[in-house]
Design a protein around this nucleic acid. Structure first.
Lengths: 345, 345
DNA sequence: CTGAAAGCGCTTACAG
DNA sequence: CTGAAAGCGCTTACAG
């Protein structure tokens, strides 16, 4: 409430001085202030000192938004995630941020929150701000709305899943390979009837993981009963029902491949450790190594994913005009106990 | 590489049309374009149609950065975290984002990454962009550099810990109360010698939790041996050493209060379940309920913290000039098993 | 070495 | 209803 200046304090309440103000206070031209602020050469020490003094008295700080408008770029990139509150997204975010900061860029983040419309709004809002580039974990099944932005010169890199209806860079995990490795691991430990519980098959990663499961079974010459494959929403209720169906009855499976972290969590909660078949989960979980038995997983590398996507984006910004590419990051099978138990019967 | 227009596609490579271009194409004045773009009334249908047609042909999209320069605000806020990659920070982030989006603002996020200098650079970079406001999880022990920004009219809300050297809004967990409850819980289950393993005492939350521990002991009339309190960095090695020291020897404690999630994790890894004393941890962990025994925790509510901080910020932006306030969010004791075992001796 | 002019892409008054 | 002018706070040419 007190609008008076306190001793030793520069700046006044709610009033940001501009270069024009500094120029007037120092009795110099606007351009000279600009030169001093930006550390350009060719200013006499006397002039520079006068400007610096005025800057100090007024508490001037350059308005970067205005500067960037003139410059043509915004020195900012945006990262659109599924939900920045989940561990996978936040790990991606940190990796992207580190590259962005190293490149002198600030980072906008946003969550589509399982709502393709919100994702679209956010993506277009970022573009309207003229972010230099956009990294998108795509939600929904149509990303053509980004085409005009890409054609107007805003590079887009898809992360975790490819975009639909638009040919752009994508950085993905080796989902099929990871599922293949996890399934083969169960097979190697003697299992022949293996259940697959996954996400909605319309989701690219889910489909790829199901493919990897089938390939591993086929490679081992094992038949797959379609009943063993249960894909759908990942809420607790549905996963619990799927797990129950697969693990009971005369043709119960002896092992389970749970194809993402939410499915794994739900399965673990539904199955008491004693009644649990062999289990391998896609995605690592904190504390997974402290469970009894410890949880065997196919781990993704979100840091590598985020860093590579960011690299791709900044390479595009640096002028790379090669055709769009799809890059894959390997997964890692981490045996810890739950996936190494032999079939019960 | 192909700069030619494809049928059905509007916009050309790398060239963003401006309102001026649209006005020229439509043969109208700039202001008329502005009216149509912003949905203002007072434009004849014919004019509007001509403008819309030109917008479509050229693929015009308003540059919000330019608009906001004229408007004086940026419709963006920034959230400075410790590390957006950790679960607590990311939960805060999501909560802040939801409020920001509802307020029509975009969100910058950044991580100080345990480096006060990086935190400072990021905070000032956000201010230089003239974000409308700033939410800061403060790192380091001096935040006076934010004073000029606050006085220039950029509201700052501190989150999780108060800022130092600056009087501003702060939204905090009831750290002392949570630690008091956790410690009292152990006392209620018969423990008299309780160890406290915490973070560096220079960190506000760590100091508050230690205070809560002492208060609970005092309230129960129990003496506290200073050896039972071990504060320091939260790396595995140091925590393991602390836990080892506390839980062995003639005066070993019968229960442990681990004062944050990293300490709890390290303690769980160091202590085999069989040799584990009663344990209550500050901060909830995913899978905590699936451990054997399940983990009793004092849970914070990051969603409430983030939402309240964002509310505070937008209230300031709406003109609230009441004195800075410190708001506290309660914690929740969740008994699951590890904190309900009686003393071994 | 220094600075007045024009412009980045919009909006805000203000005339017609 | 419509639009020319001025301005948001800077930088980019371009003269002195």
């Amino acid at each position: 409430m007190t609008a008076d200046r306190r001793p030793g304090m520069s700046g006044r309440n709610g009033i940001r001085p501009t270069m024009k103000d500094v120029a007037a206070a120092a009795g110099v031209g606007l351009k000279t202030v600009s030169r001093v602020v930006n550390g350009e050469s060719g200013v006499t020490p006397e002039m520079a000192a006068r400007v610096q003094a005025a800057i100090g008295v007024l508490g001037f700080r350059r308005n970067d938004s205005a500067r960037l408008l003139r410059t043509g770029r915004t020195a900012s990139v945006a990262l659109l995630l599924e939900d920045i509150g989940d561990p996978f997204s936040s790990a991606l975010s940190r990796a992207v941020e580190d590259v962005a900061v190293a490149e002198g860029c600030l980072l906008f983040t946003g969550s589509s929150a399982e709502d393709p419309a919100r994702g679209r709004e956010l993506a277009l809002a970022f573009c309207a701000r003229r972010v230099d580039g956009l990294i998108v974990v795509p939600a929904g099944d149509d990303h053509q709305y980004l085409l005009p932005e890409v054609e107007s010169g805003t590079p887009v890199v898809f992360l975790d899943r490819p975009g639909t209806g638009i040919d752009a860079d994508a950085v993905l995990s080796d989902n099929a390979g990871g599922a293949r490795a996890g399934t083969a691991h169960l097979i190697a430990h003697g299992h022949r009837r293996i259940g697959f519980v996954g996400d909605l098959p319309t989701i690219h990663t889910a489909a790829e993981r199901a493919r990897g499961y089938r390939e591993a079974m086929a490679a081992a010459g094992l038949p797959v009963a379609e009943r063993w494959i249960d894909c759908g929403p990942t809420d607790r209720t549905r996963v619990a029902a799927a797990v129950h169906r697969l693990t009971t009855g005369p043709d119960a499976v002896t092992a389970l491949f749970t194809a993402n972290n939410r499915v794994t969590l739900a399965a673990l909660h539904h199955l008491p450790a004693a009644a649990r078949p062999a289990l391998v989960g896609f995605d690592d979980l904190e504390l997974a190594d402290l469970l009894t038995p410890a949880l065997t997983v196919v781990a993704q590398d979100p840091v590598a994913l985020g860093a590579l996507a960011a690299r791709r984006l900044f390479d595009r910004l640096a002028g790379d005009t090669t055709p769009p590419m799809h890059l894959e990051i390997p997964t890692l099978l981490i045996p810890r106990g739950s996936g190494e138990t032999p079939p019960a019967n």
